[in-house]
Simulated scan of single mutants.
Amino acid sequence: MGVSKPLSGCTVSLVDRDLLNQIHLYVLESTEEVLPYIEYGMLIHIKTTYPKFRKRTKWLQDKHNSTFIQWLHFKVQSELNGEEHNGVS
């Protein structure tokens, strides 16, 4: 609209990696397309990888929170590289 200067002042904030990962996880868990990966894939993966912890709900949730983003990236990438995309958009 012909404005050549900022409309208001801004403040730049830096967040640490842990907070950024928490925010990223929250957004992913709120996305409809990601729900099947959470409900089936990741929890099954954790329970089979760590069978002695499968009944420890708090431990499973913490492990899920700390590894889900990387696991989802790997899982989606491998599905996209396969012959069938299995509905991955």
Rank of each mutant, 00 (worst) to 15 (best):
E33T: 07
F74S: 07
L14W: 13
S13D: 05
K47L: 04
T57E: 08
R54T: 08
E29L: 01
S78K: 01
L60G: 05
L7G: 10
H85V: 00
P6S: 11
N81W: 04
L43E: 03
K5R: 13
K58Q: 12
V12E: 06
E33K: 04
K75Y: 04
D62T: 11
V12T: 15
R17P: 10
K63D: 05
I44M: 15
L14G: 06
Y40N: 15
G9H: 01
Q61C: 11
Q77H: 12
V15I: 10
S8K: 09
L80P: 09
S4C: 15
Q22Y: 11
R54H: 15
P6K: 11
V88K: 01
K52R: 09
T48F: 07
Q77N: 12
F74N: 12
K63N: 02
R56Y: 12
H64Y: 09
F74P: 04
E79M: 04
T57G: 10
K75C: 03
Q22R: 06
K47G: 03
D18N: 12
H45S: 06
L80K: 14
S13Q: 14
Q77C: 07
H24V: 11
V27Q: 09
K58N: 14
K75V: 13
V12F: 06
R17V: 11
V27N: 07
E29S: 01
Q22V: 04
F53Y: 12
L60A: 05
H73G: 13
G87D: 03
E84G: 13
E33D: 11
L35A: 07
S4N: 13
G87F: 00
K52G: 09
V76D: 05
F68P: 01
L43A: 13
R56L: 10
H45G: 00
V34F: 13
Y50K: 05
S30L: 06
S78V: 08
G9D: 12
I44P: 07
E83L: 11
E83V: 01
K63G: 02
T11Q: 10
V88P: 00
L20K: 13
H73F: 07
V34G: 00
N65G: 02
T67I: 08
I46L: 10
E83R: 00
G82N: 13
D16K: 14
S13H: 09
H73L: 13
L25T: 06
N21I: 04
S89I: 04
N65I: 02
W71H: 02
L25M: 08
E83I: 06
V76M: 04
I69C: 06
L35F: 08
S4G: 11
G87S: 10
G9A: 08
Y37G: 11
L25Y: 04
E29P: 02
M1H: 08
K47V: 05
Y40A: 15
S13E: 06
F74D: 14
F53C: 10
